[in-house]
Structures are given as C-alpha cells and as structure tokens.
Amino acid sequence: MSPPVPVRPTTFATPARDVDGWARRFDTASMPILAETAATLQGLRENEDEVDAHLLTETVAADPLLTLKLLSHVARAQRTRSFDTRGDVETVTAALVMLGIAPFFRLFADSAVVEDWLGDQPEALEGFRRVLVRAHRAANFATAFAVHRMDHDVAVIREAALLHDFAEMLVWLHAPTLALEIARMQTDDPALRSVVAQEQVLNIRLTDLQQTLLTQWRLPPLLVKITNERHSEAVQVRNVLLAIRLARHTSAGWDNPAIPDDVVDIASLLNMRIEPTWALLRDIDG
C-alpha cells in the first residue's frame, strides 16, 4: 500500500473579524497529530489484538490535538445516540473504552501530521513546538499539584492544562504568518502582554476562542470549566492556572522575577510552606 499523500492545511493570511469567525475556521476532523504519535499508532496497529485502552492512553494523552479529536468525536457520537449515554466522557481512557480499539485506529491512525503541515515553514514549526513543550510542562505541574491535593479528577486536570493553549497551536498551524507577527511583536517589546498582541493581530483573545471551540465541540462541561479562567475562584481551576503560569515563567529557566510570586500562590494552593514548595517544584521539573 502506498503511503497517504500528506494533507495540506487550510491557511489564513488575514484575521477573522471576531471569535465566531475564527471558530468557523477550525474543526477537529482535519486536525493533525504529532509525527511521534502517528509512528507509535502505526506500530501499535500492527498488533491491534494486543492493544487495550490503557496501553493507548499514554500515547493519546501526550498529544493535545489527538486528545481533542478523540474527546470531541466521542462527545458527538454520544449526542447522536450512537453510544449509550451514561454521563460525559471526561478522560482519554474512558473515551477509548467507549469508542473501542478497532474504531479508534480506523478513525485516527491515518491522521495528517503536524510536521508535514509545517515542513516548509521551520519558524512556524518551532513556534508550535514551543507551545507544545510549555503545554507538557504545565500538564506535569498540574498533575503533581492535583496528586498532592488528593483531587479525584487528576486526569481531567491534566487534560485541562495540556489543552489550555490549544488555540495558539491552531493559529501556528492555520495562520502561521499571524502567529509569527505576534511572536515578533513580543520579541521587540518583552513587556507587551500576550492578550494585547493577540487582539491587535487576531482581533480576539485566544482564551475566548478556546472556550467557544470547547463548547462548540461539545467537550465535557468539567473540562470546559477547568480551562475557563473566569472560574479562577475554583480550586481545580487555580490548580491549572498556576501550573500554566509556572510553565510560562520557567520556559527559559528559573530566573524569571515572577517565579517567587508563583511559588507563594502554589504554596497556598498546596497548603505548604515556601521552602518545601520550592523543593517540590524543582523535583517535578527535574
């Protein structure tokens, strides 16, 4: 069998007028997955009978775009009564169990690949990868905080942190010239806030786009709530937001002057003293 022809993304050189306009530009069906994910899935597919949901979870849950594709597909299927509805499917493992292994491979194993999409745009690929690395670090911090707090929704909290910046990933994929413009503005003016640059270049805030897409794609309400900064009074949301803050501030090392304030807030979240909190964070990031 000949390899599939790489799918080229639909790209946009100009911004949409508003959040709804941007939301219409994206869908999960055509969303690519990471090359590493695609290679792992092809290897697992060769031994499909030996694969179960728990074995697949590690691969799927490490890829924020595949996580979105899977959760949104299962949510749509539930709403159309293709599956028995027994509450919202909130985790990758639950979604895989509900969907089944063979249907999963049939639907997702041959997805387009991020590195093919941006193969001729190395600056955009590097920008995408920076967001991805930050998302993974945020997910690690968020998971550790939730475990320390003995939260019953650790898996959902991890997903929320991993997916928190997915709209930025989509802009790198579908509007790389605009994403590069934002990056250059912030390089030229390090004090420029991200939301200000986004509004100037994209006409929107990416956090607003994310909430619209999560709702439009019918993702679980708990996941939508935990990713919504407007609910920052909720401890699970603070768990995620502090993990994201720390991941951003430590992206270039532990010398950022904002980090001590992060540590104070994290210590309060975890009900710990400051010095043990520093030690814990270093251990998580080690």
Rank of each mutant, 00 (worst) to 15 (best):
S2Y: 05
V5F: 03
V5R: 12
V7F: 11
R8D: 07
R8P: 08
P9Q: 10
A16W: 04
V19P: 04
R24P: 01
R24T: 14
R24M: 10
D27W: 04
S30Y: 02
P32W: 13
A38F: 06
A39L: 12
T40N: 06
Q42W: 11
Q42V: 06
R45Q: 15
E48L: 13
L56I: 08
T57C: 06
V60H: 01
D63N: 05
P64S: 12
T67D: 02
K69G: 00
K69N: 05
L71E: 01
V74S: 00
A75V: 05
R76E: 14
A77G: 10
A77E: 09
R79K: 08
R81L: 15
S82P: 00
V89N: 01
T91M: 02
T91P: 01
V92M: 01
A94F: 05
A94Q: 12
A94I: 05
L99H: 01
G100V: 08
P103F: 12
P103H: 08
F104S: 06
F104H: 07
F104G: 02
R106T: 13
F108Q: 02
F108V: 02
A109R: 07
S111G: 03
E115L: 10
D116T: 05
P122S: 10
E123H: 15
A124R: 02
E126W: 10
G127T: 08
R130Q: 14
R130I: 07
H136P: 00
A138I: 10
N140I: 07
A146R: 02
R149V: 01
M150P: 00
M150W: 10
D151T: 07
H152Q: 13
D153T: 11
V154Y: 06
V156I: 09
V156L: 02
I157Q: 11
L162S: 11
A167E: 09
A167L: 03
A179I: 07
L180V: 06
M185H: 08
P190E: 07
A191I: 12
L192C: 08
R193M: 14
S194H: 11
V196W: 05
L202E: 07
N203G: 03
L206Q: 13
Q211W: 03
L214F: 15
L214R: 11
L222C: 04
V224I: 13
V224M: 03
T227P: 01
E229P: 04
H231W: 13
A234Q: 14
V235L: 13
Q236H: 10
V240M: 08
L242Q: 12
A243I: 09
A243V: 08
A243S: 13
I244L: 10
I244F: 06
R245S: 14
L246V: 07
I259D: 00
P260Q: 05
P260T: 03
D261P: 02
V263E: 00
S268A: 15
L270C: 01
N271K: 11
P276Y: 07
T277C: 09
L280A: 11
D285I: 04
